[in-house]
């Protein structure tokens, strides 16, 4: 790369911090109790969902308000394959990933032609429609839910399996985002976000790029759903197809900073830890507080934590940049 992006200049420091974070999180399970292992597993999952949504919302600029549909699809594919067809977990997980990606790929061609509100509403419609169908169809256990086979092994092993499973998935999704951000796909998506016509006449196959981004996002979300299903061992349509899954991910992306590599992860950690530490006891007002946080973020931190950081560095750089160039009078 042409050392162009501002963020990459602080490479050495950020890589040290990153490696330290990875090492700490990797050895942490040996020092903490089951409760915190569960909390962190949930946290990783939220970060994965946010990171996956970021590809569509942050980079391509499409408000996929119903991206949770792939979470539900992944969960139910795994559940049905394991329960009804006796598959073991990993093949079922891979099938879930493929199914989610395929659905996004097929729906993407017509649906991603819609812009703005229309796309947002269409994804909500798809989410609800799939939920209703899953509730109706017999093989999924319908509205009563479906139970998965239990994880073989004791509760400690089980906790570690899902902790590391989600952790690895998070690392993979961050790596994918990093790769995309520095590839033609990433640049194409960022161009599509602000000027789709200009992107198209500059040689970007905009439709293909959008569909690819959505499919990758769906694949990651599908795996998260699959792992979560095996972890919970019981699924209900209303739970895994809840619009709140997407909305929370949305808030994490916005809080952290859309179209940044680590923003969504930071947003997820921030929001989830806050929720765990401060108001997890007050379940009655959980939703209301989340609503309040959303309103406060949009009013006071519209470009997110990373955006704030970026603005500050830009202002810093600006002071050191020459001002002479064509047309300035």
């Amino acid at each position: 790369m042409n050392n162009s992006a501002v963020a990459r200049r602080r490479f050495p420091l950020s890589i040290v911090v990153l490696l330290a974070a990875v090492v700490i999180l990797a050895i942490l399970p040996f020092y903490i109790r089951g409760y915190w292992i569960r909390v962190l597993t949930t946290l990783f999952m939220s970060a994965v969902l946010a990171e996956a949504l970021n590809l569509v919302v942050g980079y391509a600029g499409y408000a996929a308000f119903g991206n949770g549909v792939f979470f539900g699809l992944g969960a139910y594919t795994t559940a049905v394959l394991m329960t009804r067809f006796g598959w073991s977990f990993f093949p079922a997980m891979i099938a879930s990933c493929f199914l989610a990606a395929t659905v996004a790929f097929l729906l993407g061609w017509p649906v991603l032609r819609l812009r703005g509100h229309y796309f947002a509403i269409a994804t909500i419609g798809i989410n609800m429609a799939v939920m209703e169908i899953v509730t109706y169809v017999g093989i999924t256990g319908g509205g009563k839910g479906i139970s998965l086979p239990l994880f073989p092994g004791d509760i400690v092993k089980q906790g570690l399996f899902f902790y590391y499973g989600m952790f690895i998935l998070l690392i993979i999704s961050v790596a994918i985002t990093y790769w995309i951000a520095n590839s033609r796909l990433g640049y194409g998506l960022r161009a599509i976000k602000t000027e789709p016509e200009a992107a198209e006449v500059m040689g970007v196959n905009t439709t293909l790029y959008k569909v690819l981004a959505w499919s990758i996002s769906a694949a990651i979300t599908g795996i998260a759903g699959s792992l979560n299903a095996y972890w919970l061992t019981f699924l209900e349509p209303l739970f895994v197809f809840d619009i709140m899954i997407s909305v929370e991910a949305f808030v994490m992306v916005l809080l952290g900073g859309p179209a940044t590599i680590f923003g969504p992860v930071i947003g997820a950690f921030f929001l989830k830890l806050l929720s765990e530490l401060i108001w997890s006891q007050f379940t009655l007002i959980h939703m209301g507080v989340l609503g309040l946080i959303i309103v406060v973020i949009t009013l006071f931190l519209p470009s997110g934590i990373m955006g704030l950081w970026r603005q500050m560095t830009l202002r810093w750089n600006k002071a050191n940049t020459a001002r002479t160039s064509p047309g300035s009078q």
């Binding site: 042409n2 162009s4 992006a5 640049y187 194409g188 960022r190 602000t194 000027e195 200009a198 500059m202």
Partner: peptide, 19 residues
């Protein structure tokens, strides 16, 4: 129609990337 959120260099790079 400049691509917002990119630097001038990145904007110009958009032209070269998809050749």
């Amino acid at each position: 129609k400049p691509f917002q959120g990119m630097t001038v260099r990145e904007n110009v790079m958009m032209g070269a990337l998809f050749r």
